[in-house]
Amino acid sequence: MIEIVSEQRCIRCDICERVCPAFVFDRDDEGLPVIARQDDCQTCYLCEIYCPTDALFVAERADGPTGITLAEVEARGLFGTYARALGWSRGRAGGTEADPTHRLRVAQV
């Protein structure tokens, strides 16, 4: 579930608060997103790819937080990895034209 908001990377836009389908975020007085309802997070990773500055990190466990730290996410280079794998960039969609899933559909039969 969502575990990390990087204050340094965050530009205080309201996109994550708006696009989260589970309404997990509130914002504080300075506009920084606050993980207000963490247990409602559905671990869909979509906030990560909509974030224009790769400031959010969703850990892999759907049933509770892992306790991963901001320092570890930075050190392991985990910010923005899903967006890059898809071909999304700065919160903009991209990369479907290169999706090789059709090869898997042929191979799975």
Partner: peptide
């Protein structure tokens, strides 16, 4: 080849492994 297509075509499926 399949590993490559899986990683590129189904990247969300591999987030749990990569992050763990």
């Amino acid at each position: 080849a399949l590993q490559d297509w899986l990683l590129k075509g189904q990247p969300n499926c591999f987030l749990p492994y990569q992050r763990a």
